[in-house]
Amino acid sequence: MAKKQIYAEAITGNRLTDGAVVYLNPVGGWTEKVEEAAVANSPDERQPLEAKANAGLAGQLITHWEIAEVEHRDGKLTAVKNKEAIRSRGPTVRRDLGKQAEIYA
C-alpha cells in the first residue's frame, strides 16, 4: 500500500465582524496566524476541534468554518493548498500593507 500522507488538519473561518481569515487555536479562540492553529492529527482529534468551531459559530465569532490541510514546512505550520496558503498569508501583492507586510518583510 502506498504510504499515506500524514494526516494534519486545522479549522479555519472568517471573522464575522471584519471577514479576516482566522484559525481555531488549541484553547478554542481564533487566531489570524496559521502557525498558531490547533492541529488534528486524526479524525478522532478533529471532533473536539469541530465542537469548539461550532461554539465559535454559535457565538457569532465567525461566518462559517471549514477544514484546511496543514503541514510542517521548515519547522513552521503552513497550509498545504496553494489557495489556502495565500488565504493564510494575505495577498502576494501590496506587500506594503496589512498582514502580508509582516510576512514578506
Partner: peptide, 10 residues
C-alpha cells in the same frame, strides 16, 4: 447590498 465575502475579507 453588494457585500461579498472574499478570500481575505469582505
Amino acid at each position: 447590498n453588494g457585500l461579498y465575502l472574499q478570500l481575505h475579507a469582505y
